[in-house]
Amino acid sequence: MDQPALDVASVTVQFGSRRVLDGVTFQLRRGEFTGLIGSNGAGKTTLLRVILGQQSPDQGTVTIAGGRHGAVGYVPQKFLLDPDMPLRGRDLVALGLDGHRLGLPRPSRQRRERVQAMLAAVGAERFADARVGRLSGGEQQRILIAHALISEPQLLLLDEPLANLDLRSAKEVVSLLAQIAREQRIAVLISAHEMNPLLPVMDRVVYLADGRAVSGTTDEVIRTDVLSHLYGHHVDVLRLHGRVVVVAGDIDDHHADHGVLEVD
C-alpha cells in the first residue's frame, strides 16, 4: 500500500471557546475522489485551510506526501473577479505554472504549449481568451481547476466548487474532477454542503458535523446509525430515487426548526 497523499490526524481547531474542528482524522489516497460533506459552518473551509498550512491546528497533525504545501492545488470558495479585469483564462492558468516566480515572465513555446494542453484537459480552450471575470461560473471553475492542476500537485482541494453552478454545469465539473483523479492519480478532496451531485462518483466521504468527522466509503458513512452517532441524536438517512436525504428524526429536540438536515 503506498503512502497516503494526505494524512489528517486528530486535528482540533478552536476559535475562542468554540471548537470548530474536534479531533478530525482521515486519509486520502492518490486516484481517489473524496467528498468533504457538511452543512454551512460545519468547518469545511477551516479544515481545508489547515491542510493548506494557512491555519495552524491547536492539536493534531497534517502530513502531505512529498511534505510540501506547494504540492497542493487549491480552488478557493470565494473567487470574485471584476468583469473588466484584464486577465484571460490562459493568463490565470499560466500563473498557476509560475505565478510564484520573481521577474518578468519569459514567453516560450514550451510554456505556451503546456498551458494549452492544460486548457484542453479541462475543456476550457473555447473560452480561454476571454476575460476571466466575464465567464460563467462553470467556465471559471474549469479555469481555476486548470490553474490548480498545472503545477502537477498530488493533492487537489476544492472549496464548494459547485455552490454557484446550475445542475448541468455541476454535473460536468464533478465528472471532470473524477476523471482527473483517476487518470492523473491525484487525490481530490471537494467540499460541499450538498452531497447528491457527488454521489455518482464519490469514492469516499468525510462527513463533518459539529466539528467531528467520520470517513469511509459512501456506504460505510451515509447510514442511519453512523450519522446518528456523529450528530449525537437520531437522524434518518432516506434514499429516494437514487438520492440521499438526511432527516433529523427526533423533532422534539433543538434541531426541530431545521428538521431536514440535507435536501436536494
Binding site: 498550512g53 479585469m85 505565478g99 520573481l102 521577474g103 515572465p105 490553474h147
Partner: peptide, 23 residues
C-alpha cells in the same frame, strides 16, 4: 514591479490563490 510582477498580479487577482501557493 518587474521583480514582483507575477506574485503581485496573482495576489491582486486573488489573495486566496496567492496564499495557497505559499506567497
Amino acid at each position: 514591479l518587474a521583480a514582483l510582477y507575477r506574485p503581485l498580479l496573482l495576489a491582486s487577482i486573488s489573495p486566496e490563490l496567492a496564499a495557497a501557493r505559499g506567497l
